[in-house]
Nucleic acid binder design. Structure first.
Lengths: 142, 142
DNA sequence: TAATTTACTTATCAAATGATAATTAAAGAG
DNA sequence: CTCTTTAATTATCATTTGATAAGTAAATTA
């Protein structure tokens, strides 16, 4: 077995995951928002609240562009901005009720397609997958 | 442990992988090509040759846009097109020498950053990761 | 062999995204 | 109290990407 196996496996894996993610999330995004806006909402759905700077860092969107997209999302009533009471330069962004609802729906659809995709897997397989995700999370993303 | 653990782990994992992939591949793409063009070359680097239709399917780019980007890549001498001798409607796309070189360099950089990222992992950890990638590949992407 | 389908191309337009410069307002440092 | 830094915004422009309509040429089908 070659020493470089891990890297090649990783590359192949990443390509596959990219494809599957696209498959799972297609049709999940409402037409009323753009892909970048969806990625912002998705990030918010997972970690709330965040500041515009944090979003900018995590999603690799420049501050001016982050600001523009957040304004558009606010105009669509999908997010809310709150000033930090300690440092009034900082703003905290969170999903609005409406935004939360939109993302709940999106995730429900994704989740349904996800489970359909692994419906053939036995309970032991599922445990194996959980463990595998943990292992990679630990060594690769720590 | 909740029944939905796999899905949540999967979502968190996907977000992490997305972030890491961005980190690994940033600076890998030469300024002379656009992100979409890079994704085409990347796909070619992994599976060669492919037809424009296959590229269109795999990368979710419409045929007209695929055609346009392939033309641009050909103008930059990064790919070559060959007609199928049996069915002259079909074209096979492969990297040119120059394109192969560009992708070799890109992958070398990515690989270096990848190994730096897991340099703390023991040989056993690496084996665990390989196994984990195989497990997920098998159950999730089959 | 005429009609249809497939693979791909060209042209064009609109929308989304990226990049830069300049500005505001608050906080922190000297 | 001034100077500098930080967080975010506004305005503007170029580029990239997406979407659609129309067209060509080869293969397939009826």
């Amino acid at each position: 077995m070659d020493h470089n196996d891990v890297f090649y496996k990783f590359v192949a894996f990443t390509a596959s995951l990219h494809r599957v993610t696209h498959e799972l999330t297609k049709d999940a995004r409402p037409d009323s928002i753009t892909p970048v806006q969806y990625s912002i909402l998705e990030h918010l759905a997972v970690s709330q609240p965040v500041t515009p700077s944090q979003l900018s860092d995590c999603l690799y969107i420049s501050m001016p562009n982050t600001s523009r997209e957040l304004r558009k999302l606010a105009e669509k009533h999908l997010i809310e901005k709150v000033e930090d009471s300690e440092d009034r330069r900082k703003h905290y962004i969170r999903l609005s009720k409406e935004g939360q609802l939109m993302m709940d729906e999106a995730f429900a659809g994704i989740q349904a397609r996800f489970y359909k995709r692994i419906e053939h897997a036995s309970p032991e397989d599922v445990e194996d997958m959980k463990h595998a995700l943990d292992v990679l999370q630990k060594h690769l993303f720590k």
